[in-house]
Amino acid sequence: MSLPGEDPGAPAVVERVVGETGGELVLRRTQAHWEVFSNGVFLMDTRDGASEREMVRAALGGLPGGHRGARVLIGGLGVGFSAREALDDPRVGLVRVVELEPKVVEWHSGPLGEVAGRLPEEHRCDLVRADLADWLEEAARSAAAGGERYDAVCLDTDNGPDWTVREENGRLYGARALDLLASVTAPGGAVAFWSAMRSPAFEDLLRGRFGGVRTVEVPARAGGPDLVYLVRVPA
């Protein structure tokens, strides 16, 4: 119940913490929806999630219908839409999510628990607390030695290659990162990138590295469409 004079639809800060990068991380509630901000910049909310889900569907689209036990790597947990979409696919045996912020993971056992079905309790969901760029270096070394590779890799760690909330995330869209992503992806597997806007330069970089790029446009609530860039690692 709101107090006299208060706007019942006004955003309410639920938690404000210092994140791993030293910036401010905020979770707030606006009526029925949750919103996450980093240093005052909007990151994500629970109003839609259509483009995040489409990213996962596009990446898994090349799997045979009878495939079982597929491994999916997701960069960025967010409000959990991507992880839940992957877990709901019967062909998927493991979803590994790499998330930098421990507090975001913690929220999925609390305020965000019902949004994506309490992911920390999912036996097929492995939540790794790490910087994705650093984690990929180690994962690539492991893959080269015969270790784990993924049938689908989905990156939603920021707003896209040309709009990074955290400057360091720019390295996830460079040539070195594309080589690392290719090395941890199984032959014939897919790598998908979420972006809030079109990035011709990044599209050219993908085309040069993988030979072809599929672009999926998903209508957004406001402004231009969200985009998913999809590439495949040669079989």
Rank of each mutant, 00 (worst) to 15 (best):
G170M: 08
V165Y: 06
R124Y: 07
E121R: 14
E148R: 14
E138K: 15
F37Q: 05
E24Q: 08
L172A: 01
C125D: 09
T21A: 15
A130C: 07
D89N: 14
G65Q: 11
L73P: 02
G78I: 01
V105F: 05
E52V: 06
F81R: 12
G113F: 00
V79F: 04
W194D: 05
L127I: 15
T185C: 15
L112D: 01
A190H: 03
E20V: 14
L100C: 08
L155G: 00
L172E: 00
G65N: 06
V233P: 03
R141I: 00
W107M: 05
W34A: 13
V115Y: 02
E15K: 12
H123E: 13
P11S: 07
E122F: 01
A235Y: 02
M1V: 15
G49Y: 04
G9P: 01
L3H: 08
A190G: 01
P111S: 06
V14D: 09
N39G: 07
E15A: 06
V79Q: 06
V184T: 09
V14P: 05
R207M: 01
R96K: 15
A116Y: 02
R149N: 07
D204L: 10
I74R: 02
A196R: 08
R124A: 10
S2Y: 09
D151H: 14
V18L: 07
F81E: 03
E24R: 10
V18C: 13
A116K: 01
A143K: 04
M197N: 12
S38H: 14
E114T: 13
W135S: 09
A130Q: 14
E99W: 15
E167K: 09
G40N: 08
T30Q: 15
